[in-house]
Simulated assay, not measured.
Amino acid sequence: MKRIITLFCMAAATAATAQTKVVTQAVITTKTTTVSPEGSEDMAPPPPPSGDGGEQRVTFRFGGDGETKTVTTLKGDMVKTYTENEMSRITTLRDNAKKTTTTLMEMMGKKTGVVATDEDQAAAAKKLDSMMQSRSQNGGGNFNFSSNTVTASDIAYTEESKKIAGLQCKKALVINTRKNGNKDTTVVWYCPDFKLQGLVSTGGTSGFGGFGARLTGLSGLDNLAGFPMQYEMKLNRGRKMIVEVTKITLDKEVSDKEFEISKDFELKSMKDMQNGGGPGMMFRFGGPGGGGGQ
């Protein structure tokens, strides 16, 4: 009897996987809303005007109160994420085949670009870990990347459903266990009809590549039985982030021109910029109080 039940469960899982098609071309518009508790103030110290070697730093702040709209375009191994606000326009081009991420920035009339390999991002993330831990130890903040690291993720599926962007979605609970032993639960609404090739989610901090998951501390979306269409996360200091897909097109032919880089941009490698070959980058996440995640 036990063998029959096991075989039945395996057959059910196989059938569910077969029904979830993998889409290789899509255009997705996503709205991210970050809200702070009433009366909270931004107490985070301003970022330093220059690096250790005196190089200029360009600071990007993500996660302040309000709405941010992103448009994500997928074709095969290429993913483009476009974000625009009052001060800047940022386009992130991800090549999953070459494992490189190019960030194009348009600020104050200047057009610059940074090309980073996955190894570059891992090294930068390690350095950021060290900086944040040092800041925490010196009383400059209470966020610690190390303790915020997710060590395990579990998903609990429910029968609840609703429509998002015209698609029928189901509710799931993503439960993350962190290095410090804490657990947190994120409610995720997902569409079981499809997944996107090489693209786990859109909106939120997904446009920042590997930094995004580290800063928000949300893991496990890649294991969902479908594509995440809406989720709400708790951030530090009582804040929350709501991410929702507002429009998605799965049947449109995407042109290769979408991923071409204009000659107006001055491209540099991340290593060159870190070695004083141009303005460095500093990302400030989390809105009031700085930092992200739990």
Rank of each mutant, 00 (worst) to 15 (best):
E160I: 04
E160C: 03
K162N: 03
K163Q: 15
A165H: 07
A165G: 10
A165V: 12
G166N: 09
L167I: 09
L167G: 05
Q168L: 08
Q168F: 00
Q168S: 13
C169K: 07
K170R: 12
K170Q: 12
K170A: 03
K171Y: 00
K171G: 00
L173H: 13
L173I: 09
V174R: 12
V174S: 14
I175P: 02
I175K: 09
N176T: 03
R178H: 03
K179R: 13
K179A: 07
N180P: 03
N180A: 04
N180K: 05
G181S: 07
K183A: 00
K183R: 12
K183S: 05
D184A: 01
T185Y: 02
V187M: 06
V187C: 03
W189S: 14
W189R: 04
W189K: 08
W189C: 07
W189A: 11
W189P: 10
Y190A: 08
C191A: 15
C191T: 14
P192D: 03
P192W: 00
F194T: 05
K195N: 01
L196M: 11
L196V: 08
G198P: 08
G198I: 00
L199T: 14
L199Y: 09
V200S: 11
V200E: 15
S201N: 11
T202A: 09
T202Y: 00
G203W: 11
G203K: 14
G204V: 11
T205E: 08
F208Q: 12
G209Q: 07
G209S: 05
G210T: 11
G210E: 08
F211N: 10
G212D: 05
A213L: 05
R214H: 00
R214W: 00
R214N: 01
L215G: 06
G217K: 05
L218E: 00
S219F: 01
L221W: 04
L221M: 12
D222A: 13
N223M: 15
L224S: 07
L224Y: 02
F227Y: 11
F227H: 08
M229I: 04
M229W: 04
M229Q: 06
Q230Y: 04
Q230R: 11
Y231L: 06
Y231K: 07
M233W: 06
M233E: 10
M233F: 01
M233N: 09
K234E: 12
N236R: 15
R237Y: 12
R237H: 13
R237I: 06
R237M: 10
R237P: 08
R239Q: 14
R239Y: 01
R239L: 03
K240H: 12
K240S: 15
M241A: 14
M241G: 14
M241L: 13
I242F: 05
V243K: 10
V243E: 03
E244M: 06
E244H: 07
V245D: 14
V245N: 14
T246L: 05
T246S: 11
I248C: 09
